[in-house]
Design a protein around this nucleic acid. Structure first.
Lengths: 192, 192
DNA sequence: GCCTCCGTAGACAAAGCTGTCTATAAGATC
DNA sequence: GATCTTATAGACAGCTTTGTCTACGGAGGC
């Protein structure tokens, strides 16, 4: 019932858009709040009103990445057909899409986790993301009839993480292809 | 002929030991030069004499990591026997060893690359490391008789990277096991 | 004796960081 | 019209960062 209070293009959205772009490119620690303010064109007080601490902005950034990446994964899986077996391989099309994207710079979660202290809120959020994704893959593996769904899910998410993480070094599109072919082999083996 | 000018336990070694420990735990960007100075117990002028810029220290850190990790990989492969086929799988014992190690915090190269700007010296060094490792794996795959050695090498290094990178999130030892079993499957498939 | 090398100790500058604060203005609502 | 919300503009404090600088001390070679 309550209509959204913030219209599109609002200050909050501009801040988040800018933070998303800058944080992904340079890592949250590599971007000062002042830079986000300058590039988003908002006032300092406005930013600190919406995000009292910088970490709040980082968390919002991670949520946005989570929605985008997890959404792309499910979308790629759906596009691969109805059979869970095909979906397990099809989700790797999302990896290929990410690798091709301009400014591709690896996995935002791994990159952020690498620079956040172990017990902190930010680090916990990154772990949660990976847990949710793996749970989803596990369920898919179970539906596909894998003997050891947890193992297969871990193998496939390992490939995803490897493909994403390697993107921070060189965004070679061959990586996505190799990951996809690995996934095919592993799925076939698990469902033999 | 020229004897080593710097004795063991010299200031240079103390600096490097400290930098290795701190940089790996918090990322180079997360550790100030002052902290390295304080914890290594050297004078500021001494550090800047050996490493004029912080990046020089980071590069030396990466070289040390490269020696350690690449050495562990080759050692694990050698321990797996004479057959290249076994060595391709055996090198994953190095991953298991890394995951078990206390203070394990993922792949130093990926973590460092994530926070270094794309064209920079540091970033280039991380890419070089991965290239050297993959070339070594490719040669091993060729010796094993793989039809597509480059593909198999990419698949296996992808698994290595994934296993290493995931360590920054949770150092679950199951990861290394899943990676090893994936490697076995992929190698068997490639050498069928 | 003297000079060079290696090291310590710490002040210092210039810049960047996060976060707070005051003052002001425009629009919506009562 | 008064008030409340949201925004702008920017000064400011307090801290950390990298990197330079001066001053000093000891050990070994000539």
């Amino acid at each position: 019932m309550p209509a959204p209070r913030t219209p599109a293009g609002s200050a909050r959205e501009r801040i988040l858009d800018t933070a998303f772009r800058l944080f992904y490119a340079h890592g949250p620690r590599g971007v000062g709040v002042d830079t986000v303010i300058a590039e988003s064109g908002v006032a300092k007080a406005t930013l600190y009103k919406h995000f009292p601490r910088k970490d709040d902005l980082v968390l919002a950034y991670l949520d946005r990445v989570d929605q985008a990446w997890f959404g792309a994964l499910r979308s790629a899986a759906r596009d691969a057909g109805h059979a869970p077996r095909d979906q397990l391989v099809g989700m790797f099309d999302a990896l290929a899409g990410a690798c091709r994207r301009d400014g591709y710079h690896g996995c935002a979660f791994i990159n952020t986790a690498a620079e956040s202290s172990a017990g902190g809120e930010v680090h916990v959020r990154t772990v949660e993301h990976k847990t949710v994704v793996r749970a989803w893959v596990t369920e898919l593996a179970r539906q596909a009839g894998a003997a050891e769904p947890e193992l297969l899910a871990r193998q496939l998410t390992l490939l995803l993480d490897g493909g994403l993480a390697a993107g921070v070094l060189d965004g070679d599109p061959l990586i996505a292809d190799a990951a996809r072919r690995s996934a095919r082999t592993l799925v076939d083996e698990a469902l033999r």
